[in-house]
Write a protein that binds this DNA or RNA. Sequence first.
DNA 1: CGTTGTGAATCCCTTCACAGCT
DNA 2: AGCTGTGAAGGGATTCACAACG
Lengths: 240, 240
Amino acid sequence: MSAVRTNRTVRGIPDATVARLPVYLRALTGLADRGSRTISSEELAAAAGVNSAKLRKDLSYLGSYGTRGVGYEVEYLIYQISRELGLTQDWAVAIIGVGNLGHALANYGGFPSRGFPVGALFDVDPDLIGVPVGGLPVNHIDDIVTVCRDREISIGVIATPPSAAQAVCDRLVEGGVECILNFAPVVLQVPDTVEVRKVDLAVELQILSFHVARRADGAAPGVNGVAPALDRMDGVVVRR
Amino acid sequence: MSAVRTNRTVRGIPDATVARLPVYLRALTGLADRGSRTISSEELAAAAGVNSAKLRKDLSYLGSYGTRGVGYEVEYLIYQISRELGLTQDWAVAIIGVGNLGHALANYGGFPSRGFPVGALFDVDPDLIGVPVGGLPVNHIDDIVTVCRDREISIGVIATPPSAAQAVCDRLVEGGVECILNFAPVVLQVPDTVEVRKVDLAVELQILSFHVARRADGAAPGVNGVAPALDRMDGVVVRR
DNA sequence: CGTTGTGAATCCCTTCACAGCT
DNA sequence: AGCTGTGAAGGGATTCACAACG
């Protein structure tokens, strides 16, 4: 994690910054659509929902792309952020698991339109193999390695049941995929050359639950919240 | 943000800790299924993919639920974490936007089975109103306020196109919903009594893109990556 | 004059290391 | 003897505040 490039700045952009760049990018494309030519850090920060000092510091990691007394040129900043994020080229994704979620993802236009064409679909279900979903026929999960190699898949999206996730992940890695977006509620084991990001819907809801519960706490009983709270520890409450 | 409760400990559990509790919970239920009675911080940490000191510190915010020299009793810890997260009661969720994603979410069994019954569905499309999705008829988006009030909805899941998201959000808040899970690529404006969490698939892919691009950088040309990289700044490359 | 870019201060989270308990 | 619980140290990220600059 100490890759020094001889480019413009010595790199090592903080993870927190990288995670915000796409948000800035979205705000900027919105502004470009509405015809803005330049924008100040204050305004852009408001549009992105962050503090302006944070925005300026984030952008400063990319280089000095603003003009003092004026602001940032929208189109130019869009280009610089896109370049930094590697969005100047397409990266093919594979979706593994064509159930509810995988189906929705395969049909979701937001991926290809942002430079992430869906290059392959995989499932185990024999009834699905060969059936086109979102215009692309489903391949068998046993062919992950060869198909990913052939089609130069860069990103694997795991939308399988949890029990299958690790095996699928292993094959993706074997097929040369080094970036994985994991929707399965499992902690994946990968070599440290591989980058994994996780989206876990149940976890998100449980985090929200903490906040609802906290609010309900002080409030009058019966305000949003279906069953009465358990007060006694008389058994385990987690369902499956 | 300085809510002091007179319970057992003075509260104020760090956000980072709250975000990990669901992960511990999942690891623990897995262990319980396999019949483990107790577990050490070392083992549980490994299962959850974190460092053991972090795990112990996180758990220490809930209270002293371990036994020195032994470890944690699995069932008891499950109960304590569930209680802390407010999972000892159900919280009804509403899904707004019954398109690809909303449809998948409505049919996803993981929500109700974890204590988040789907209590309402909304859309604007007249063809969808009244049609049952996942067993529940779709309501019109104009009825959000009254339906959410009536059915005591605690959590709103926004799965609409970005253009509709803010208006939907406003109505949810008006209907008494104080926790929102937002799938629309928009920064929502809410009163600070409302908690918003965001899941943005395109952002996740763009973050991964940064990492793919970084890897591809040093590698031989042609290794995973569809189009040749742009070297010149001759136009804007972001698509819509 | 207005806004960027950035050292310095602050805050929060993570990790270490070990005292304290079973 | 072994493992938890936690002060203390360390590392990042955020925010402040202002010098530098167009």
